[in-house]
């Protein structure tokens, strides 16, 4: 069997997974983990978790952690491979959806699809917030921080970046 370059193997596997990642890349995270950590042992469990945390803490879409995984495994080629594998399916399918919508903007099915899925999308956002809260801690201090952020965003004009900076400071200070 001929040896496939690591970046190409990464690209192909991540591309296939991203093509089926309805609901976001987090849904295929376990499969990506199995591929790079368990099957190929290109990175360790600890590195995988660290890179995920790094991408979460950094600004920008959380899905950018796939770039970090590629970079860690195969340098620049790896970073390009995983990033393109992430973006190509999404971009192509989004443009396809736009084309369908442009052709028949008021089709009954299109309207039903958007309006029908909308409450599910909102339910998922409630779930994300809730799961983040539960995953981080069971301590009251954490819940207090969440409550402060929730109320401040709904009731004040404070720039939420201050809240995020404050949260990070609380973490570093050991408050939560």
């Amino acid at each position: 069997m001929t040896e496939v370059p690591v970046w190409l193997a990464l690209f192909w596997q991540f591309f296939l997974l991203c093509c089926i990642s309805v609901g976001g890349t987090n849904t295929v995270l376990p499969d990506m983990h199995r591929f790079v950590v368990e099957e190929h042992a290109w990175i360790t469990d600890r590195q995988f978790a660290d890179l995920y945390a790094l991408a979460q803490a950094a600004p920008g879409p959380n899905a950018l952690w796939v770039t970090l995984v590629g970079l860690q495994i195969a340098g620049w080629q790896g970073a390009a491979a995983t990033t393109l594998a992430l973006l190509i399916p999404s971009t192509a399918l989004s443009f396809a959806a736009i084309a369908l919508h442009t052709r028949r903007p008021h089709s009954r099915f299109g309207i039903a699809l958007r309006r029908g899925i909308a409450p599910i999308a909102v339910g998922l956002m409630f779930s994300s917030g809730w799961l983040l809260l539960r995953s981080a801690s069971e301590q009251w201090q954490g819940y207090a921080l969440t409550l402060v952020a929730f109320v401040a965003v709904l009731r004040t004009r404070l720039n939420p970046l201050w809240l995020i900076a404050g949260g990070a400071a609380c973490g570093v200070a050991g408050f939560v």
């Binding site: 917030g129 981080a136 404050g166």
Partner: peptide, 14 residues
């Protein structure tokens, strides 16, 4: 830092 931020982000999302 991420731990602290996580609680804030949870509040923002909710």
């Amino acid at each position: 830092a991420l731990r602290g931020m996580t609680f804030i982000v949870a509040g923002l999302l909710l």
